[in-house]
Each structure stands twice: as structure tokens, then as C-alpha cells.
Design a protein around this nucleic acid. Structure first.
Lengths: 171, 171
DNA sequence: TATTGTTATACTCTATAACTATA
DNA sequence: TATAGTTATAGAGTATAACAATA
């Protein structure tokens, strides 16, 4: 009985609808965006995110660890994706001078060029699919809610709270 | 110049933020929900969706094609997932009497039982992560916007409009 | 010919564990 | 010991194309 939320509670009709709509929208959007990135630059969404972070970083450099944070991956998954990008000379990797354990990832000119090449279509997809049907009020409302939810999720025990014993969530 | 949307347009700061928040939220939610379904019932999200549709269908029966619609898959992907569910006796498959080409999928009692077993924790995850931080007004606003966006996406040329010649989306 | 579905196959991605090297 | 990252490996999921059968 030390649960924060009550597992016997239901979702009301409006909640259920919103949940399903959210998942459908993000799924369709992801699909569309993925396909565009693949066609336009042979990039997966994850690879695009890596490039985006690097392009937005000071000097176009970040440590592997910094890249991993927020991109959901395991470190080995990031190594794999970074390996693909490096093979195409879109990024380079070099040991950090400060901490020899760390690896500094840098976008190359080719990486920036590809990112710039792909970005307009990406943005266009998002605008066309997601924002086109919204009014300014819609956008403002959406921003408010999503911001709140994101903050809540980030503060919520990081996915599954494994350390806790006796997780009987389905009883 | 026959584009509906202008590819040179940018996303403003608020749009970009909302887009990133949406993707982060759905990603985290998907991750959490996926993990729960896996732990509680050894089900992937897709398998859960298949069961959910069947449970909600008249007589617990649907054709493969009906199942495929909306679940983003290729038909072979659906066959694969249905195969996994059938192997566990959670569904059965039989040729349709009406149209011998079609396959009718039915939930078994075991399938219903597993779905019922897993549902409360699933719902609880969604409520805890997504709806807990929302006010009633938030929910109402979100529903409105998402509903509009979903309708727009469904009406929009089904992902990538391949039939169109000369798709230069990244120029 | 078009539709429904399966199968074979190849590929991508992800996760785990073992490992190296530095702090 | 803890941290940063890689590698090996195995498994899940997906897509494509070829196929069979029915409409």
C-alpha cells in the first residue's frame, strides 16, 4: 500500500482517447520523419539526433557520455551508431586530452553539410504534419501541457525503478 | 511550386520546443509501457495492441487485414507477431468462411486472461506518467489539439506520397 | 489480375556481458 | 573501485520479394 498511484483506477474516456491519439501521432510522425531522413540522407532518426546535438554544441564536439544522455541508448548502442557515422566521415572520434578515458566526438564538415541538407525537409515534415492544423492557441496550450508532462516524466523515477523490491505491478 | 507547404519556412521556438517535447514524452512513455508489458506478460507493445483490438472486437475476431490497418506494419510483420501469439495459444487463426483468402484471428480465453492481467499495470503506467501532472483543463486542451492533429494526419497523403514524381524535398 | 496471407531471407537495431584502459 | 568506452554476440523486429491460393 505504499504506491503513489492507485492501480485500480481507470482512465476515463477522454484520457484514453488522448493517450491513443498521442501514441498514434508520435508513431506516424516518427515514421514520416524517419523515412524522409533515410531517403534524403541515409540517416536513421538516432543518427540525425546525434548530428543535431553535435551541430548545436560548442565547436561541434561532445563526449560519448554526453551524447548518450537523453538518447535512450545503451552505451554499446551509441558506439554502434557512432561507428556508422564515423565510417561515413560524418563525425570523428578522438581521446579527450583532459580525461584519457573519454572520447570526444566531433562533427566533420561533411557531417554539417549533410545535416544542413536534411534539415529543411525534416522541419517541413514536422510543420506539415504536426503544426499545420494548429491554431496559435492550440500551440500555446500544447506547449504548456507537454512542458508540464515532460518535467514530470524527467522527475519520475527513471523508468521502472528497478532497485525496488517486490514489484508486483500487475496483481 | 505546387507544394502545399513552404519548405523554406522555419519552426519557431515554441514549435520546436513542442515538437521535441512530444517526441521525448512519447519515447519515454513507450519505453516505460514496453518494459511493463514485457515484465508483466512477456508482450511487446505491438502484441499488446493486437490483443487489445481483438478483445475490443465483436466475438473477439478480426481479419489479418483489419489487424494490420493502423498498426504500422507490413503484412509479413503482422504474420510474424501473430505467429508468436499463436504459438503461445493467445490467439488462433483460421480461414474465413466468407472469403477463403482471408484469415480470421480470434483471441483465446488465455489471451483474454493475459490481457486482463496486464491491463491494469499498463493503464497505471499511462496515468502515472502522462496524466498525473495534468489538470482537467490541460487534458481538455490536449484532447482538442491531438484530435485535430490526428484527423489532419489521417487525411494527409499516407506517408511520403510515393506515387508523386520528382520528390525533391531536400533541395 | 487483384487481393490475402505466408515464407525465406537479409538487415538493422538493441541489449548484455566481458573486456581494456584510465581515474 | 569506479568510470568511459569498445567488442562480441545473440536476439528481436522489420522489410522486401517470391510465392501460393482465392476472388
Amino acid at each position: 500500500m505504499d504506491r503513489v498511484s492507485d492501480p485500480t483506477a481507470r482512465l476515463n474516456t477522454e484520457q484514453l482517447g488522448a493517450y491513443l491519439a498521442l501514441m498514434e501521432i508520435s508513431s506516424l510522425l516518427q515514421y514520416a520523419v524517419d523515412e524522409h531522413l533515410r531517403n534524403a540522407g541515409d540517416l536513421s532518426y538516432v543518427q540525425f539526433q546525434i548530428l543535431a546535438r553535435l551541430v548545436g554544441a560548442p565547436d561541434g564536439k561532445l563526449r560519448m557520455t554526453d551524447l548518450a544522455d537523453g538518447i535512450v541508448y545503451s552505451r554499446s548502442g551509441l558506439t554502434y551508431q557512432a561507428g556508422l557515422l564515423a565510417k561515413r566521415d560524418l563525425i570523428t572520434r578522438a581521446p579527450s586530452p583532459d580525461d584519457e578515458r573519454s572520447v570526444i566526438v566531433s562533427v566533420t564538415d561533411a557531417g554539417r553539410a549533410l545535416f544542413d541538407h536534411v534539415l529543411p525537409g525534416h522541419v517541413d515534415d514536422v510543420r506539415r504534419l504536426l503544426f499545420e492544423p494548429m491554431t496559435d492557441k492550440d500551440l500555446a496550450a500544447l506547449s504548456t501541457v507537454l512542458g508540464r508532462v515532460r518535467a514530470h516524466m524527467r522527475a519520475t523515477p527513471p523508468r521502472s525503478a528497478k532497485p525496488r523490491a517486490g514489484r508486483n505491478r500487475t496483481g
